[in-house]
């Protein structure tokens, strides 16, 4: 297990290098002078000249990458073109907000997906199973932004049950209750696709477990159905579910980006959206980097969890 963990952790180094390299290249792939792009069109000639020297634009490409990477590691993510402040001061709170939203949608996806999947899988072909699986088919293809709009229309505008914009009320700024209220609709919208996938997976792995040879064995030896369900079937569907959770985090984060725009959630997604429209390159670079790194880290944690459940790897 330890050697696996070390191997797995070492394996993310080349991935992170690749990711950072890709993000770094964005500046060079857009035609024009990188220094101008980083400082914005309004920059003075002196500032551009100074930045050109800082970036080492006269030096070879890979050395430039090295300089950029060193800056990143020092925590210097550059300055926002549109806001004229350091990128990290803007982005870190936004990253946290995005992670809150992703966490909320992960909770919705897991609780909803597992519950529906288990109920459906325990009684296949029951009416509950048929109905939920019918909807799950659509769920996997729901355009997240559309669902966000529909939910907002029904629950915020028509019924007025839940807030439609932002992360908290101006009056009760920051209270947990207020954030939770604001979190519900965006979480559901962002979770929809993963929830459907999760419900289907849970159902099918539960059915597979029930049809497996070992369940047949335990039944043949008179083990109670309770033990078969709770001890054996549940334990064996855990790995595929955890695996899928890891795969779905990407989709949840992607969903969050859309949902943030619809619900004006002050996260990385909204920020990226306005940064792209405002051509604020340093912000775009850092935002992309943040999301990609969190994604890689979440997957790492997930892989280690899955491995710790698998007896073949544990020993």
């Amino acid at each position: 297990m330890l050697s696996y963990a070390i191997k797995r952790i070492l394996a993310i180094i080349p991935i992170l290098m690749g990711v950072s390299f890709l993000v770094f290249s964005i500046v060079y792939l857009i035609p024009g002078d990188p220094a101008v792009k980083i400082l914005g069109q309004a920059a003075t000639d002196e500032a551009v000249a100074e930045l050109r020297k800082d970036l080492g634009l006269d030096k070879p490409f890979f050395i430039q990458y090295g300089i950029w990477l060193a800056n990143m590691l020092k925590g210097d993510l550059g300055t926002s073109i549109t806001m004229r402040v350091s990128v990290d001061s803007v982005l870190i709170p936004k990253l946290i907000n995005t992670l809150i939203l992703t966490g909320g949608s992960l909770a919705v996806c897991l609780i909803g997906g597992l519950l529906i999947g288990l109920l459906a899988g325990l009684k296949p072909y029951s009416w509950f199973d048929r109905i939920s699986m019918f909807f799950a088919q659509f769920g996997a293809n729901v355009p997240v932004f559309w669902l966000a709009i529909v939910l907002m229309w029904i629950f915020s505008i028509k019924l007025g049950w839940l807030p439609a914009f932002g992360m908290y009320d101006m009056r009760t700024e920051g209270s947990t209750w207020s954030i939770l209220q604001h979190l519900i609709l965006p979480s559901i919208a962002a979770a929809s696709v993963s929830l459907a996938v999760m419900a289907r997976l849970t159902r099918s792995s539960l059915i597979d477990a029930f049809n497996s040879d070992y369940v047949k064995t335990f039944r043949a030896y008179g083990i109670s159905e309770k033990n078969i369900v709770f001890k054996h079937a549940f334990r064996n569907i855990l790995s595929p579910i955890l695996n899928m959770t890891g795969l779905q985090v990407g989709s949840l984060m992607g969903g969050a980006l859309f949902v943030e725009v619809v619900f004006s959630w002050p996260g990385l997604g909204s920020q990226l959206y306005s940064s792209i429209t405002g051509q604020d390159l340093p912000m775009v670079q850092a935002g992309v980097l943040f999301i990609a790194i969190s994604f890689v880290l979440v997957n790492l944690i997930n892989d280690l969890l899955v491995a710790s459940l698998n007896p073949r790897l544990r020993h």
Partner: peptide
């Protein structure tokens, strides 16, 4: 039937690997 299963009649299967729970 549970009284019969395992108590009076037991069964062994073709593939012993899949016939045991891999997680325990």
């Amino acid at each position: 039937y549970r009284q019969i299963q395992g108590g009076e009649i037991a069964m062994i299967f073709q593939n012993p690997l899949t016939a045991m729970d891999p997680s325990y």
